[in-house]
Design a protein around this nucleic acid. Structure first.
Lengths: 108, 108
DNA sequence: CTAACGTGCAACCAAATGGTTGTACAAATG
DNA sequence: CATTTGTACAACCATTTGGTTGCACGTTAG
């Protein structure tokens, strides 16, 4: 569980901060599919979807695998879990602070 | 647990997609503090930090409370948990797909 | 009262984002 | 072979983002 760099966390959350990209992630979790198959589902150009997939790829949320002339997009849930781990740190900080407050109250 | 709108999820993840804002969240979880106290910690203008706090506020990750001339920034962990819940949906989809594959294999 | 402090906000700027169209090329199809 | 399909990539554009400075205004301290 090597720590993520700030850049990697930036890329992760930025990739998740777009509804089209979140939808793409959901779709490829459900069933891996080509970029063009994905593009058919959205009211935007193929190139736009291609860019979204590229953003997801740089965030490691998806990977691409070539199959003939198609590029198959697959989900990588490890990145989702890394994002969750970042949020869990906040939860930990929260509990730590709560514990400190309790300690202070008990002491006083 | 009313469902979040796409806009709200967008705002949540976008707010988290910046290291300064993530650091601000961590700091105010540890101890609530004024905007100017926060601003002292960063190599940028007060106005810049003010804007970051504003982004976090619109994402409900923090709240501001006035104390005299100061504006005290406090963490709202509920938003962190909402973000986690979004990620959990992906995990659920993943398990659902895995279960489907298992069922297919068992059937065959 | 005067000065300093903390904030709010507007104007401005460079860079990134999310979209477009057009071109090029490799792979599959007829 | 010629055509269609799927992809890659560049150029371009409008909007958003992340920063700046400057100014106004209420609040606290001397």
């Amino acid at each position: 569980m090597d720590a993520l760099t700030d850049d990697e966390v930036d890329a992760l959350f930025r990739a998740l901060a777009d509804r089209t990209r979140r939808d793409i992630v959901a779709r490829v979790i459900d069933a891996e599919q080509s970029v063009s198959a994905l593009a058919e589902r959205y009211a935007m150009s193929f190139a736009a979807v291609q860019k979204h997939v590229s953003v997801l790829e740089r965030a490691s949320l998806v990977a691409k695998r070539r199959r003939g002339r198609e590029q198959i997009v697959t989900a990588d849930l490890a990145a989702v879990r890394r994002a969750r781990a970042v949020l869990d740190v906040y939860e930990q900080l929260w509990r730590h602070r709560a514990a400190q407050i309790d300690a202070l109250l008990a002491e006083g």
